[in-house]
Every structure is written in structure tokens, then in C-alpha cells.
Design a protein around this nucleic acid. Sequence first.
DNA 1: CTCGGATGAGACATGAATGTCTCAAAGTGG
DNA 2: CCACTTTGAGACATTCATGTCTCATCCGAG
Lengths: 211, 211
Amino acid sequence: MSHPSYTCRMATDRDTVLEAAVGVLSRRPTAHLDEIARAAGISRATLHRLFPGREALIREVGLLGLQRFAAALDTAVVEDGDAEAALRRLVDAAVPDAALCAFLAGENQLYDDDHVNALWDVQIDRLHALFLRGQQQGVFRIELSAAWLSEAFFDLIAGVGWAIQDGRLAPRDAAFSITELFLGGALRRHAAPNPPQSTARSARTTETDTP
Amino acid sequence: MSHPSYTCRMATDRDTVLEAAVGVLSRRPTAHLDEIARAAGISRATLHRLFPGREALIREVGLLGLQRFAAALDTAVVEDGDAEAALRRLVDAAVPDAALCAFLAGENQLYDDDHVNALWDVQIDRLHALFLRGQQQGVFRIELSAAWLSEAFFDLIAGVGWAIQDGRLAPRDAAFSITELFLGGALRRHAAPNPPQSTARSARTTETDTP
DNA sequence: CTCGGATGAGACATGAATGTCTCAAAGTGG
DNA sequence: CCACTTTGAGACATTCATGTCTCATCCGAG
């Protein structure tokens, strides 16, 4: 406590451990502390030194996830400009932390913590506002409520997080898959015989992986 | 054991208990057996008489979910006719059991059971085949892999299950929300200045609920 | 080299959930 | 009305994850 340099190094350690914890907890919420410690490459004793107990660890994982998602909303500047472009930016910013989001989606009602819940509500409200704005701009459909769009969007992010962890989806395909499906849907557009459809804004790989 | 009528009544009891268990477990996978028993309206002793233990109970809940989803695939006859129509039928058939699907999505990697995994693979393969067929029919987009479409579809079903349980989505809106978003996407089609957009296939309430 | 702090390994106690048991009460069919 | 079964309530032991502790080791700083 006397040497501030130590506390600085501790911070990075904590985040490293939390990231490792997510990898285990997002798949198996009931994982023992032994597994989490092993996944983080530390001993159970050190894990207990970093976090008072299991409850605190879970709480901080959730907090980290919410902070990351909030940061994604920030970097995507979702409150500015065209809603569609904002959403595309958000996907790109959020996909790297999809595992965190998967954890949040699985445990979001497990929290009794006010701080976590408040932070959660803020982010969901920002998402909600984005879709509402998009609807007002005439960008998003109005038959689907903004609340449902928020819900579904987060479900897809979380689903991608799980799929990546289980090896069912390549990380490089994640952002494209979410964006295209969420914005355009699964249905193919056959407006005209010639296909001037969505003008492939980036030459993404269109391979169909067969697991 | 001498009276077959008793065993018959047991079967219905088991399913009743399992349904109650889903309501608790899909939200809180770590719920105690006490809560599950209370939710089912029986005592913990009877719960133990119906299921040898917690593991067996979880297993049977998963099995029930898979059977229900398989039944939905059956009633929707997903292997026949137009893929889009088949998918719409599937949504209608699967939404009532969305809670089961939510449980499956949350615990699908928690199973070491071969029977469960085999059943799971079969259903996923049927989904995959549906999307593959739709792509060959020119109905579904080919930029998105059939595997991803299967994944995302199940994610949305599960998400709806959670949202309904938490009261964030009205059950009557569930099928419409999934179908429209998954097939059509969130983006509004502005083919012409005049808006002859999707001719509101049913006068659903388009209110934007504010939680 | 020596010291201070951090870490890992392990022992230990604790508490909670689970599994098993008995017994009294209630319901059902004869 | 009686016999049988099922159920609920509770006590009880057991298992296991958690939380706390000590001690030996390692590493960097001075």
C-alpha cells in the first residue's frame, strides 16, 4: 500500500485473471474456483487474495463485461450520425468482447448488486435509444419494437460469443455474420433478375464453413 | 408395481414437475432442489422419489427440451416445401417451448450424456439442413453460412424464452418478432419514396414498450 | 547477498446442498 | 371400514466447495 507501483501492477493482474475467468464462467457458470484459478494460471490462494470470494469475482466479471460493452458503445459513438452505420460500428467494437457479453446474457438476472444493475440498465438504454433513433430516421423497421431489437441484438452478440468459444464460428466471420443477419435478415432479396443487392461494402470471405 | 394405472399417472407427474423445473432452472441453473420442489408444488422427498438426484433431473429437463424441439420440427414438417414457409411454421411451433430452448442454450455444453448429445446433434442437423435447402432454393442468403443461420436462429428462440420469462416480451409478440427479424432483418426497405412496405400481415400492436 | 513481498502448495474448518432415512398424515380402492 | 400407497415434514449423515490459515519457495530491490 506504501508503494503505488505495486497497486498499478495489481490492476493488470486482476484484469488478466478476470479475462481468464470469463472463458470458464461463460461456458460453465458453476465452475469451481480451482478451475478458474488454473485457467488463470494462478493458485487458488492468489485468486482469493485478488478477490475476497466467489461472489466478488463473479461481480467483477460482470462489471468488466459491462465496462467493455460501454466502451464499445463509446468507441462506436452510437449516439451520432446514421443509425445503420452506428450499428455496424458497434458490432465491430463489441465482437471482440463477445465472450463477456455471453457471460452477461447468461447471468444478467443473477445479480442482486445495484451497481451492476444500474450499469446494465444504462447500456441497454443506450442500445434502446440507438434503435429508437434509427426508427425515427426511417432506417430501422417500426413493426419491431426498439426493445425487441435491443434484446435480439444482444442475444446475437452473446450467441456469437458462445459459438466462438466452442469453435463453431471463426472470429473473423463474427462481425460480418451478425451485421448482415441482423440488418438484412436471412431472406434473399430477389427484387430484380440482375442482383444489384447490398453492394458488398467489403470483400469479406463468403465461405460456408461446414463443421 | 402390480397396478399399471399408478405408473401411468406417474408419467404425467414427471412431466409436470419437469415443466416447473424449467421455469426455475432456465433462469437460475444453480437453483437448489428446494426451490425446484416448491415451484413444482411437491416436497423435496417426492422430488427425490421421481428423480434419483439433481443430475438426473437436469438430464431429464434437457431431454424434455430436446423432445419438444424435435416435436416442433416435426409439426412444422421442416423438411417439406418452401423453406421460408417451413421456417415460419417452425417458429410458431417452437415458440411455446422457448423456455425449454433457453435452458438448452444455456446448458448445452454442460452435458456429458451421450444420449442427450446425440439427440441435440440430430435436431441441429435438421435445422442446418433446412437452411441449406433454403439456400439451394434461392430463398436464404448464401453469404451467411447455414451453420451460422442455425446458430443465430436458436439464439433468438432462446433469447425470446428468457425475455418472456422476465416479462420483457409479450408471448403474443414472440413469434412475429422472431420471424420478422430473422427473415427480414432490422433494416427498413426503402425501395420507393412512397412506402408500400411490408403490408402488416396482422395488425399487431407496434407499441414500443418502455421498461 | 540479504531482505521484503508475493506466490504456490497444502492442511484445516465451515457451511451449505445433497442424498437417505423414518414416521405421521392423507388419499384411494377394495 | 380397512388395507395399501403416496406424500410431506423433518432429522440425519455425507459430500464438496468455499474460506482461512500456515509455511516453504521464489523473485526483485536495495
